[in-house]
Amino acid sequence: MNLFRLLGDLSHLASILVLLHKIQTSRSCRGISFKTQALYVAVFVARYLDLFWRYISLYNSAMKVFFIGSSCYILYLMKYRYRPTNDPSIDTFRIEYLLVPCAILSLIFNYNFMPTEILWSFSIFLESVAILPQLFMLQRTGEAEAITTHYLAALGIYRALYIPNWIYRYFTEGVIDPIAVTAGIVQTGLYLDFFYVYFTKVLQGQKFELPA
């Protein structure tokens, strides 16, 4: 564990708390992509079920339980409690275009051709693109509530911080994980446009609006 990874994980944790706060206080999931949230459930279940056979630390297990639990809870909120505020007609990204390529990539690129390792690779690839339905929805509506952009910023910062973590681990432990690093760089890259608008507009007190 190093500071980059810890801050990254805390940013990830914060992003989910911000999202829950947004949904609970506004009693609405407007502006949130159900598809992205469903993909995160798939990511967490595929990767974190290893907590049943691989113990790393109490911190690691507790975070895994939290991420699986909170992501399922968010789906429940969107699908049941605040269902009327969820508008599927603007959440139109075709997720099979993500699921199928990720499944194929995980069969080719993995560290061992066994179900648990293929699932691990699949979750890494899927996580890197799971935000696309959300970004696509943002692009379509052209604007977002400030709190939704804080959620996205925290989520993006989480992955961005994993990059210095890998650089640090390369120099201190001599290890490099090509699958995680490649997917992580792609994932962070997807946020660059969003970050630009977030830092130049939202943090300056302006509304999040995309140029037409």
């Binding site: 690691n60 061992n112 890494i124 432990e173 699958i179």
Partner: peptide, 10 residues
Amino acid sequence: APPSSSHDEL
């Protein structure tokens, strides 16, 4: 063990 360091990451 798989030759991956990231299995201890979240």
